[in-house]
Amino acid sequence: MNLYRYASPSTFYPLAGRLAPWFFALAFILAVIGLYISFFVAPTDFQQGEGYRIIFIHVPAAWMSMFIYIVMAFWSAIGLAWNTRLSFIMARALAPTGAMFTFIALWTGAFWGKPMWGAWWVWDARLTSELILFFLYVGVMALQAAIDDPRRSDRAGALLNLVGVINVPIIYFSVKWWNTLHQGSSVSLTRAPSMAHIMLWGMLIMALAAWMYAIAVAFVRARSMLLERERQASWVRELPEGKA
């Protein structure tokens, strides 16, 4: 199998078009299963009551927010190294989804925090890192939006993305350090007492659903970006939607 073939926009475009609905369907099915487990199968937590169920959204969203940033950095690195246009487009297509998951993680974190900690926001190390990750996403998107020339915009965004990904562990470490220095909250999001297997399953399935959703959305977004950028190219003109 020649992988390079799939790096060509003219092959990627129809392939992504065919695959996107499947990923959407998978995302939907997995989300239904995951939500069923999290609301009806998983037992009520004896300490946290029903409110803990928000972690079935919160934890997968937090995982995704970090994964997507790393995946973006991966595409950025490939794009800068081999100057492949599709990699930049993939990195760009993922950014809004990543930012959305970061936002969801923060939002649900606040909802979880209110009953558990009695405050909407606590400067917990994880929440704070997540907030900074959100700023990093916004920075990359703002930079890309501010540059009109697509080539420069792609490459500048990719470079910033790479700088960010080197910094994320340092930021995370420093925030943890800061948190211990200031004797922050003693409750931690992940120190849920002996997580039941079924809870872990629920979270994993939800995370998979989020993955499928992210891939589907990235495909759709990448397709529309390709159409817009390559409208001069012959393969676009031969498409039924290119003839209009």
């Binding site: 900074i132 700023f135 990093l136 916004v138 920075g139 703002a142 930079l143 501010a146 910033l160 700088v163 960010g164 910094n167 340092i170 930021i171 470490f173 420093s174 925030v175 350090w177 800061w178 220095l181």
Partner: peptide, 20 residues
Amino acid sequence: VLITLLILPLYVPVLIFGAG
């Protein structure tokens, strides 16, 4: 304004260690 948006998050470790 843009440079502030891009760079301030990267300054977090400096701020933490410096002020710390």
